[in-house]
Structures are given as structure tokens and as C-alpha cells.
Simulated scan of single mutants.
Amino acid sequence: MSRPTPPSPQWPQSTPGAFPGAPGQTPYPASPAPAAAARNGLGVAALVLGILGFLSSPIPFVFWVGAILGLLALIFGLKGRGRVRRAEATNKGVATTGAVLGALALVLSVVGGVLTYKVATEVVKDISASADSAKALAPRDSAVYEDGLTLTVSAPVAYTPGSAATGHKPGDKAYQVTLVLENARKKAFDTGDIGVKAWVGAKDTPAGKIVDGKSGAVGEGFTGTVGPGRTVTVQVAFDTPPAAKTLTVELDPGLTYGRTRWDLPL
């Protein structure tokens, strides 16, 4: 007689997605995916650049740096706010502050530019006034510069321009002046850098320069290069009103030398 087959054991079924465990144990739920990190870099950069731009924009001579920083802050701030709207960043206030400071920096850079212009203008006026207030030399006095360059202006002598001369007005008087340049430097000097001006009375009454080729090269001034240890002499002539009492001649060898004046009685 055959024996009955015993029933097979029944195990509990595991819940899909649950952590498998022993029979009868409550399964753990699946872990959620980690949230994406906030992209707050643009907002922070906008704030830093905005502060730097705001502080540097009104400063003369560096206002352009503030303008560049302000423009970058404005761009980064607006882009940072865009990330906030797309839920990619969380620092809306920081980005907004950076954009506002950037815009203010751009406005203040205009003020800085105006201040730079005014400061530069005042500096130029002060330099000109200082040069104009320097004591004028007398005829045949020499201006000796530290590097060995020497300039001398002679006393004026009456001059009769030729028929082909230019720069002389009928009824005016003409005077010829001799200019001497001595180069005791160790290197050549380019005389093309020398500026020659003259006026009578007030500085705003210039004396006309006469160019006359009848005897030598009167009126052409300095030309060419003077070697070390060499001396060059040129003749210049000026047109003056008949009642003029003093002819002022100014020589400017270049920016590094400074201008020198001679007051020449007529």
C-alpha cells in the first residue's frame, strides 16, 4: 500500500522592489534618487564683481576697470536669475544684488571718466602755469639742461625781409634772432623735437614767423640731428607790431626737458 505524498512547504512571497529578508520580515522601501546640487556660482560671481566694480568705477584713471567689472556682474547676475527661474539655483537675492551693483557700476564709470578728464585737464593747466611762471632769461643767457644740452638765444636785431619772404605784414617790423644749440651729451640729439614760439606783450598775441631764403635759411629753425660735442646755429625772424617793446621767444626741446623763455627788448 502506497504512502500519501506530503505537501511542499509554502514560503511568503517578497514584495517587488523591497529588500529581501527572511520569511515573514517586513521589507525596506527603495532609496530615493539624490537631488541635483544648486548651481549658485553665477550669482556669487555677480555679487563679487558687482561690489568690486561699484567701488572702483568712480575712481579717476581706473574707472574703466569698474566699467568692465560692472558689465560682467550685470551679465552674470541676469544669467543667475535665469537659473533660479529654471530651479537650477537657489540664490535669487544674491544674483539680483550682483546685477544691480553691476548696473550702478556702469553708471558710476561715466562719472569716473568725467572726473578723470577734469583731473587731467587741471594737471595740464598746472604744468603749463608752472612753466609760464618760470623766470624768463635775458638775451644771450643760456638754458643748460642736466644731460648736457644747452640752448642760447641772442638779442634781436632789425631785419629787412626780402621780396619773396612770407609771414611779414606791411607796416609791421621784423627782427632776426640767433638760436644756438650745444650738444654736450654722449649721444646725438634730434633737433626736430625743438618747438619755437614767439609773442609780443600778452602770450595770446603771437609774433608771426618769417621765412626768407634771401640770405641763408632764415626762419626754417632747427633741422636734422646734432652729434655729441657738436654745436648748431640757426637764424629765425619774427614779425611784430610797430609799437611792440618786448619779443618773448620760447624754446621747447621736448617733454623731458621743459620749456624756457627769453624776454628780448626791442
Rank of each mutant, 00 (worst) to 15 (best):
S154F: 00
E182N: 11
D147P: 00
K169R: 14
T121I: 07
E182K: 15
L151K: 05
Y145S: 03
Q176V: 08
A134G: 09
G162C: 04
L179S: 02
T160K: 11
A164S: 11
K125Y: 12
S163L: 10
P139N: 06
H168A: 09
A138R: 11
K125Q: 12
S133E: 13
A131V: 11
K135C: 04
N183F: 02
V157S: 10
L179F: 00
E146T: 14
K173P: 06
A158Q: 11
K135Q: 15
P170H: 10
S133W: 08
P156C: 04
L151Q: 03
T121M: 12
P161V: 02
A164Q: 13
T160W: 06
T150K: 09
V180P: 01
Q176P: 05
E146Y: 07
S130G: 15
K118P: 06
K173W: 05
V157R: 12
Q176W: 03
E122P: 07
S130F: 15
G148L: 02
T178K: 10
D132C: 08
E122Q: 15
A165C: 03
T160P: 05
A138E: 08
E146N: 13
E146G: 11
P139I: 02
A143W: 01
A136P: 09
D132F: 14
K135R: 14
V177E: 00
A131Y: 12
P156M: 04
S163C: 05
A120V: 06
S154E: 01
A174L: 00
V180Q: 07
A143K: 02
D147Q: 05
T152F: 00
V177N: 01
G167T: 03
I127Q: 15
S163W: 08
A155K: 08
S128E: 15
D147S: 09
S133N: 14
G167R: 01
K118V: 15
G167I: 04
A120L: 06
G171E: 05
E182M: 10
A120M: 09
D126Y: 13
P156I: 02
Y145G: 03
G171A: 06
A184L: 10
K169D: 09
D172L: 07
K118Y: 09
K173G: 10
A158E: 13
L179W: 02
G162H: 07
P139M: 01
L149M: 05
S142C: 04
S130T: 15
L137G: 06
K118E: 12
P170F: 08
D132A: 15
V124K: 15
A134K: 10
A158K: 12
P139K: 00
G148T: 03
P139G: 05
P156W: 01
V119Q: 11
T160C: 05
D172A: 08
N183P: 01
L149F: 04
A155G: 08
K118W: 12
A136R: 09
V144G: 07
K135M: 09
D141P: 06
